[in-house]
Structure formats: structure tokens, C-alpha cells
């Protein structure tokens, strides 16, 4: 039997003195060329098509209502994610606490909020004010301590935060729980053996190690959230999409104005993706093996 030595791609020789000719891929090149041509044609068509009204795109790109809408979109994204992360963290710890009541509440919450479409939840919170004019906090059948008008409590903005944030918490709970479970048991045990209380061990030992499993999917969630905020158009909250819609409802220049919205969504997801890259690098350190 003879032993065959496979050519190494890097050197292009078999180690003996014969010259090896690498395989050629003519079809690959042809296909790539065709696709490139197609892309150029589309871009060229869009760029030169007068119906695209690039002049209008330019006019509205930095228009005040658009920028205000942009700011609103960012504000909802950040606050809804914050609600999602904090509440999700609490739900995750409830799941892992070993207390059956907390476990059941956490599971019930996730099941409920993941089953109902976010758009429906948004509308629900928004219209809740119509059915329940007042919300109070107090002893059942007893005195009420805090009372608030739902109309002012659940404004459009509040409804957006509740709708998006509460749903997000259900997903974040799952992400944080998986992250905490990815840290070996020995870590919390070693912390316990040193006399660290469970809460402190969670914060200082387990959570920092769980971060590298939590951060990447959380970045994805933030990017999804950014795009999901456009659903608030259903409750007429003046975010980026609602703002351009208001404008094109007057001037009927839908495509250029939607292009403006696309541009800003693209910029924001781009920035978030870069941020995610740096966060991942930051939390990946010192935690090999």
C-alpha cells in the first residue's frame, strides 16, 4: 500500500519537488460576476430613477419631525430594553430560586407574554385606559393606598414601553437564565464555601461569568427591539416611522420618505452592531476554557 500525501493549500507543493496546480473554479467566478452585475444594475436603476426623488430624500433626511421621531424611537428602544433586562433578570432569578411559587409565577409570565403578539399587547395597554379609568394599589376589598388615572398613567408612550418592555422581559428571562446556568456549579459552591451570601455570589462571581453568554443574544434583542418599535405606529406614537408617515400622508411622496426611515434604521442598527462587537470583546476576556 502506498501512502498518499495530500497537497497543502498554503504551500501548493506536496513536500516533494513536484509543482501542484490548485483546482480552478471557473463557475464560481462567472456566477460572482453575474451577481455583481445585477447589484450594479439595481443600484444604478434606483440611483438614477426620477421616481425615487432623491432630492426629497435629501430634504427630509434631517428635517425636524424626522429627527424628533428618530429620538423617540431611540428613547423607546432604550427604555423598553431596560425594562426587559431588569424584569427579565428578576424572572430568571425567580426561575432558579428553588421556590415553587416564584417558579410558577415566572413560568406563567413567560408563557403569557410570549403567546400574545406584541402588536396586540401594545393595543391592549393603550386601550386599557378606556375600560379601566382608574388603577389602584391597596388591600383586596380594603383601603386603596395609591390611585392613578389610567388615562394619564398609560399614555401612548407608557403603553409603548409596557407593550414592548413586558414582552421583552419574557425573552430576556430565558437568555439570562441560560447564561446563569452556563456557569459551572463549582463556582457558586466555591463562593459559598468562602462565606459569600448567595446574592453577593450571584452578583460578583456568577453574573460576570454569565455575561459572555448573555451579552451577544441581548445585542440581538436590542436590534430586534429597535425595529419592533415601529409597531407603535398602531397607537400613533410619533416615532420615526409614524413621523415619516405623517409627512407622506400630506405630500404623497411615500417611497422617498420611507427611504429616509430606512436610512435611519440602517444607521441605528449599524451603530448597535458595532457596540455589540465591542461589548462581546470586553466580556469575553479572561474566561477561556
Amino acid at each position: 500500500m502506498t501512502l498518499k500525501i495530500l497537497p497543502s493549500r498554503r504551500t501548493g507543493t506536496v513536500g516533494l519537488d513536484e509543482v501542484v496546480v490548485p483546482r480552478r473554479h471557473p463557475w464560481r467566478w462567472l456566477l460572482a460576476g453575474l451577481l455583481l452585475l445585477l447589484v450594479v444594475m439595481i443600484v444604478e436603476g434606483l440611483a438614477t430613477n426620477p421616481a425615487m426623488r432623491w432630492d426629497v430624500v435629501g430634504d427630509y433626511l434631517f428635517a425636524e419631525p424626522v429627527l424628533e421621531g428618530l429620538l423617540m424611537t431611540l428613547r423607546i428602544t432604550v427604555l423598553a430594553m431596560l425594562i426587559g433586562i431588569v424584569l427579565g433578570g428578576i424572572l430568571a432569578v425567580m426561575r432558579l430560586s428553588g421556590n415553587p411559587v416564584l417558579l410558577a409565577v415566572s413560568l406563567g409570565y413567560s408563557a403569557l407574554f410570549r403567546s400574545i403578539p406584541v402588536l396586540v399587547q401594545l393595543l391592549f395597554w393603550f386601550f386599557l385606559s378606556a375600560v379601566l379609568p382608574k388603577i389602584g394599589l391597596g388591600v383586596p376589598f380594603g383601603p386603596v393606598f395609591v390611585e392613578a388615572e389610567t388615562n394619564s398613567l398609560i399614555s401612548r408612550f407608557g403603553a409603548a414601553l409596557l407593550g414592548l418592555g413586558l414582552a421583552e422581559a419574557a425573552y430576556m428571562a430565558e437568555i439570562i437564565r441560560a447564561g446563569l446556568l452556563s456557569v459551572p456549579r463549582g463556582q457558586s459552591e466555591a463562593a459559598a464555601a468562602l462565606g459569600m451570601p448567595p446574592g453577593k455570589a450571584l452578583r460578583r462571581i456568577v453574573l460576570p461569568q454569565a455575561m459572555r453568554f448573555i451579552v451577544p443574544p441581548t445585542g440581538n434583542q436590542a436590534i430586534s427591539m429597535l425595529k419592533m418599535t415601529s409597531l407603535v405606529i398602531a397607537i400613533s406614537l410619533p416615532d420615526l416611522l409614524t413621523s415619516v408617515q405623517t409627512i407622506y400622508a400630506r405630500n404623497f411622496l411615500q417611497i422617498p420618505l420611507l427611504t429616509v426611515a430606512c436610512f435611519w434604521y440602517l444607521v441605528m442598527t449599524g451603530v448597535l452592531s458595532v457596540g455589540q462587537y465591542f461589548l462581546e470583546r470586553r466580556f469575553g476576556k479572561g474566561a477561556s476554557t
Binding site: 463549582g186 459552591e189 466555591a190 464555601a193 462565606g195 460576570p208
Partner: peptide, 17 residues
Amino acid sequence: RRADIGMVFQNFNLFPH
């Protein structure tokens, strides 16, 4: 009470971060 007892594990369990 645990703080007054030292424990060394088979797998070291050092804090990697």
C-alpha cells in the same frame, strides 16, 4: 460559619474572571 472553614475542591474552582 462557612467563612471560618476553608475548603479546597478537586477541580480548584478558582474564579476565572
